[in-house]
């Protein structure tokens, strides 16, 4: 099976501080990969390197077939990205956000127009076409942001806490969208602090103090740690952390 992410010994230091400490892992095409860890464990720094936004101090890696150090511009064109903090422009309307991101990724006007209709239809969003994004409830915003992040059919999409603060019903709808994307062959790399969402991933890694201390399917991790839930697995691992948050 081909690999969309391959990382070996990836390290990032800021002065004396090692934010990411020699991590190695692969992610397969179409996989939903959960990237877990406590606040401050190094997840965001690692994601920035994978997205070509930050150069590793040591180690190597490729994303969507491109080298993360030398071909970072190619990576940006072949991935999608959304986070809880930034995803859409609040002062633009729904259709304007779609138009803007479609344009940034170089899609033709005709393609954008056609795909916009499909997107609004699928989200049941036709009545919101002209709504300012800031007027949408958070859960709707996040569903729209995800749809836009995969609008250009990237090989892989990075989701940094996409469901933070989103209510349980909306969170489930969001995960069904993730499954749909994965079934269409888009690889999903996702972080979350909801441990029941970790169960929805094919495999998860858990970062502690910049290292990956565990990596396997949720079921295997629960068995290996003699835990009833992923929350217990997480508590066992993250409590060992030396680094102050």
């Amino acid at each position: 099976m081909d690999k969309v992410i391959e990382v070996e010994g990836l390290t990032k230091r800021f002065g004396n501080f090692t934010a990411v400490d020699r991590i190695s892992f692969d992610v397969k095409r179409g996989e939903i990969f959960g990237f877990l860890g406590a606040n401050g464990a190094g997840k965001t720094t690692a994601i920035h390197m994978l997205c070509g936004l930050s150069k590793p101090t040591e180690g190597r890696g490729s994303v969507a077939g491109f080298d993360i150090t030398r071909e970072n511009e190619m990576i940006k064109q072949n991935i999608g990205y959304m986070s809880q903090k930034f995803s859409l422009y609040e002062d633009l309307r729904v259709w304007e956000n779609i138009r803007l991101f479609g344009g940034i990724y170089g899609l033709a006007d005709k393609v954008i127009a056609k795909k916009t209709e499909e997107l609004l239809e699928r989200l049941n969003f036709k009545s919101e076409r002209n709504t300012m994004v800031k007027a949408l409830p958070l859960g709707w915003k996040q569903k729209l942001a995800f749809s836009i992040a995969i609008f250009h059919e990237p090989e892989i999409v990075f989701l940094d806490e996409p469901t933070g603060g989103v209510d349980p019903a909306m969170r489930r709808q969001f995960w069904e969208m993730i499954y749909d994307a994965a079934e269409r062959g888009i690889t999903v790399f996702v972080t979350t602090h909801y441990m029941e969402e970790a169960e929805y991933c094919h495999r998860v890694s858990i970062m502690v103090d910049g290292r990956i201390d565990a990596l396997d399917s949720p079921r295997n991790l629960r068995e290996a740690y003699g835990a009833k839930s992923m929350d217990e697995v997480f508590q066992q691992l993250a409590r060992k952390a030396q680094r102050a948050d």
Binding site: A38, N39, Q84, G165, M195, D231, F234, Q235, A238, A241
Partner: peptide, 13 residues
């Protein structure tokens, strides 16, 4: 108001 949104499970506890 939602003091633990975005906070990891250990810190939440």
């Amino acid at each position: 108001d939602e003091p633990t949104t975005g906070v990891d499970p250990v810190s939440r506890r």
